[in-house]
Simulated assay, not measured.
Amino acid sequence: MTVLKSLLLFAVAALFEIGGAWLVWQGVREHRGWIWMGLGVIALGAYGFVATLQPDANFGRILAAYGGVFVAGSLVWGMVMDGFRPDRWDVAGALVCLAGVAIIMYSPR
């Protein structure tokens, strides 16, 4: 159950961080305005809160592992929201990052 909870928290954190960054990007780069940027800042703050809910209490471990989730999640977000099509190297890199997440977070200690 702890691993499932951790995986769900990583997914929610990714939604908030990647979504927040995307909203800021849209507000600035696509000239959608302050409301988009403001919503992005709120989502980024929510990401910071969600990260604290991980069962492991080690900040460095959580943030390091989340980096791999961010890499893979960003590619998925780009596919869904912007029509980005990753190439085989993008996919391979994301899989390597997710393997790193699994080793960092879920190896026996």
Rank of each mutant, 00 (worst) to 15 (best):
Y66S: 02
V24K: 11
V91T: 04
R85M: 10
Q26E: 12
Y66H: 03
G100S: 05
A72M: 00
R88G: 06
V28M: 15
I42E: 09
S6L: 04
A14W: 02
W36G: 10
G73H: 00
A94H: 02
D82G: 05
M37C: 14
L9R: 02
L39D: 15
S6H: 04
N58A: 02
S107K: 12
W89F: 14
W36N: 14
Y66F: 05
C97S: 09
Q54Y: 03
G68P: 00
W89A: 13
T52N: 07
R109V: 13
G78Y: 00
L44I: 08
L39W: 15
V101W: 03
L15A: 15
A94T: 01
G19E: 06
W36Q: 15
M37V: 15
W34V: 15
F70T: 00
G93A: 03
A64C: 01
Y47D: 07
R29P: 07
M81D: 13
Y47V: 08
M1V: 12
I42T: 14
L4E: 12
F10A: 13
N58C: 01
S6A: 08
L9G: 02
R85P: 05
G73P: 01
I103P: 10
G48E: 11
E30N: 15
G73Q: 00
I42F: 13
I62V: 15
G93F: 00
G27D: 07
V41W: 12
A102D: 06
G67S: 01
V80K: 09
G27I: 12
F70N: 01
Q54M: 07
E30T: 08
W36A: 14
M37N: 10
D56G: 06
I104N: 13
V80F: 07
Y47N: 14
M37P: 13
L8H: 03
D56V: 09
F16N: 06
I42Y: 14
W77H: 05
V3L: 10
G40N: 15
G33C: 13
W34E: 15
P55D: 07
G45I: 08
L98W: 00
N58E: 05
M105K: 09
G73C: 01
Q54H: 05
R85A: 14
V96I: 07
A92N: 02
A99G: 09
G19T: 08
A72S: 00
Y106A: 10
R29L: 13
S74A: 05
M79G: 03
M81W: 10
G60W: 02
D90G: 07
Q54T: 05
V101G: 08
L23F: 11
V24P: 07
D82Y: 06
V91C: 06
T52I: 09
F59Q: 14
M79P: 00
W89D: 09
R61S: 05
R88W: 10
A64R: 01
Y66W: 02
A14S: 12
M1G: 12
S74P: 01
P86H: 03
V12N: 08
L7E: 04
M1H: 08
T2A: 15
A92H: 01
G93N: 04
L39S: 08
G38D: 13
A46Q: 08
Q26T: 10
S107H: 14
P108K: 08
L95M: 04
